[in-house]
Design a protein around this nucleic acid. Structure first.
Lengths: 339, 339
DNA sequence: CTGAAAGCGCTTACAG
DNA sequence: CTGAAAGCGCTTACAG
């Protein structure tokens, strides 16, 4: 049995002061009044050092009605985007003495435990990336209970929480439009595996299907391959596509990674990009800039979430509840040499 | 101003029962005694539904002296390994009604806020991956205060917390040994950028340097390139290396990703792998299995953290404090065709 | 300047 | 079977 965790009462006894003084010394807070004098302060700090005292978050959080923790919720697995946002959030939070916890949401696994973190006042606020398992009513309820929320979503209306628009469908549609406008009719699509109802996967596939339909181009099932989540599968699929009797002249890929391996496959077959195969990816990852030819892609222009992060802290700092706002950080079609 | 969050007292008034009964109904717990009868139960649940009541974690955690939350701490950015561990942990935790929070540790940023999560009884326990910013004394202190900890580390002695050994240095040494034993003397190394004191980066570079030294091979600075964290840089560096007047005949890379791009570079120059360039990576990522030739690599044999996860829950469930144990999940040299 | 005391929202041993 | 009450560890308005 480990020795009982020391409490502020233990510190107070050891230092010969009241628990109020201990709290004042440790928090540095003191209404308007003067802080305790150095001599008292030192006695308290010595007692803390001697006992290894650590504040108990539960007591503090119960009394202060705040946790000084914020969360970042995102669909697992993580991506360069969620990693980057975690970093920006953590740096900004550290300035204010707040901690950040990440909440990866695993597709298919139970979300009950994660939602508990949001609902049971475990955190003061959160940034939720696209496609998190909460609907508008739930978010509004959380906001009404005082949680500060900034939500990436293209459809939800703000309602006590803020919404960041990325207009992903529009940007993906611009990609397929570009290919069709350039004269392509045999356009292959590397899709996600469709075994789960991932909304972003839907957006991507829908933009392909809608784009073809809008121009009266019949969709050839042979040209749609669910290989976007596996680089080697993507390589093999594009190689096979290019060996068809009537091969595609353009390729749209649900991921940049698969698009890049598609370019490798084309190069290995002596098929030049973009002349004989135009390639466009989705996601705009840094790696796409480096391949030859550089990858045309759909995605956020910059790895910059500072607006969303700033808004979360505005909300946390606000005296009264802020109305929901719309922020904009649109995805764009970023044209490079590959398509 | 949002309406005050309802408390169990509000629910009790609405349902015409005591707060004790509310708590019994909501927790399902009831010492040995019988649970409240269905009629009472229903009145309580109706009041909960009407008010949108949510439990307050701070009150509960203060009283019960547990948070029902566990953490996973890992160096940012995330990797397939940390993602996988997060998933295993979350699935196992969900079975017990525990939530999981991820704590990415950003190199260079302040770790104070993250350490607060561990120290201030914000969580019941945690799995810490390699190279987290806590020393043995600190970990022992946390363990003594009741935190359940399972720590991936090759050097620390267990001390109230458990340690998972990966023997990374030994496994990396086996890779360089293999190349030297096969007769290679011109061995290139793709290293991490050395602008931060990442201990794993040290382990990798050390195994290269030590391996050469052990066989009396002089190290050629020309053959060490800090490109392991950038695929395009790796590609370019290997291309340049192979064009040297006296090119390397073998390549050890601090990352599998860079090793894979090294293989692409060799292929594009008509240099066959492994005949004219033997290639070994570190990390054993799934992608390495798919390239041709498949990548020889150093890393964990399987994406399986069940032992570590199981041990964390053993510790959480234990009545008395468990002594620290050593678990083993060694990295291995996984020999495939590339080197 | 310091301390006694109330109270944050729960849970649970205990009395009825 | 149910409720009154104590108490978890903090913070802070208030009295001295």
């Amino acid at each position: 049995m480990p020795p009982r965790r020391p409490t502020q009462r233990d510190i107070a006894e050891r230092a010969g002061v009241s628990t109020a003084t201990v709290s004042y010394v440790l928090s540095g807070r003191r209404g308007g009044a003067k802080p305790p004098p150095p001599e008292t302060r030192e006695r308290v700090l010595r007692a803390v050092a001697e006992t290894g005292y650590q504040l108990d978050q539960a007591g503090r959080s119960l009394r202060r009605q705040r946790t000084d923790v914020v969360a970042l919720m995102y669909p697992a697995p993580s991506s360069p985007w969620s990693d980057r946002l975690a970093e920006e959030l953590q740096v900004a939070a550290a300035d204010r003495g707040l901690a950040v916890v990440a909440l990866p949401v695993i597709t298919g696994a139970s979300t009950a435990a994660i939602l508990r973190i949001l609902r049971q006042r475990y955190i003061d606020g959160a940034v939720l990336l696209h496609d998190c398992p909460l609907d508008g009513a739930e978010l509004a309820a959380l906001a009404a209970q005082g949680r500060s929320l900034v939500v990436f979503d293209d459809d939800l209306e703000p309602d006590g929480f803020d919404v960041v628009r990325q207009n992903r469908l529009r940007a993906c549609r611009a990609a397929i439009e570009r290919l069709i406008t350039a004269g392509h009719r045999r356009i292959a699509f590397l899709s996600h595996a469709d075994d789960h109802g991932d909304p972003l996967a839907d957006v991507k596939l829908r933009s392909y299907t809608d784009g073809l339909a809008a121009h009266g181009i019949a969709q050839d099932p042979q040209l749609v391959r669910a290989v976007a989540d596996s680089r080697p599968d993507a390589y093999a699929a594009v190689r096979d596509l290019l060996r068809l009797p009537d091969p595609p002249t353009a390729l749209l890929s649900a991921t940049d990674r698969a698009a890049i391996d598609g370019i490798w496959a084309a190069r290995d077959l002596g098929v030049t990009v973009p002349d004989r195969l135009a390639v466009i990816g989705i996601g705009n990852i840094p790696e796409g800039l480096m391949i030859s030819p550089p990858l045309t892609s759909v995605g956020a222009v910059a790895l910059d979430f500072s607006d969303a992060v700033a808004r979360l802290f505005e909300r946390l700092d606000a005296e009264a509840a802020l109305p929901g706002a719309e922020l904009s950080a649109p995805w764009e079609l970023i044209t490079r040499a590959s398509g």
